[in-house]
Computed example of a mutant assay.
Amino acid sequence: MAELLVIRHGQASFGQDNYDVLSELGHRQAEAVGALLREINWVPDRLVTGTLKRQRDTLSSMGFSKGEEHSGFNEYDFGDLLNARFKGDIPDLVSGDRRAHFRTLRETVFEWQDAAFEGASETYKAFCERVEAAQKFATDTDAKRVLVISSGGVIGQMTSVALGADKRHMMNLNLQIKNTAMTRFMFSGPSFSLHEFNATPHFMSQARSELLSYS
Rank of each mutant, 00 (worst) to 15 (best):
A134N: 02
E132S: 04
A120G: 14
K87M: 08
R103T: 12
K125E: 11
S121D: 13
W112Y: 06
V94H: 05
R106Q: 05
I90G: 07
A116F: 04
A134H: 01
T141V: 08
G96N: 14
D89H: 14
V94M: 08
T123P: 11
R145Y: 05
F127V: 05
R103W: 11
A134R: 00
D97Y: 01
A100M: 04
L105H: 10
F127A: 10
D97E: 01
D114T: 15
A143K: 01
A133N: 00
R145C: 07
G96Q: 15
K144A: 02
G96A: 13
R103L: 15
T123W: 11
G88W: 10
E132L: 01
S121V: 11
Q113V: 05
Q135R: 09
Y124E: 01
V131T: 04
H101F: 15
D97K: 01
L105G: 08
E111Y: 09
A134I: 01
C128F: 05
T104E: 04
K144H: 02
R85Y: 11
E129H: 08
A134T: 00
A115C: 04
A115I: 02
T108Q: 09
K136T: 09
A120Y: 13
K136R: 15
A100F: 03
A143I: 01
D89C: 14
H101E: 14
V131H: 00
K144Y: 00
A138E: 00
T139C: 02
F137D: 12
K125R: 09
A84E: 03
A133L: 00
S121H: 12
L105S: 10
K87L: 06
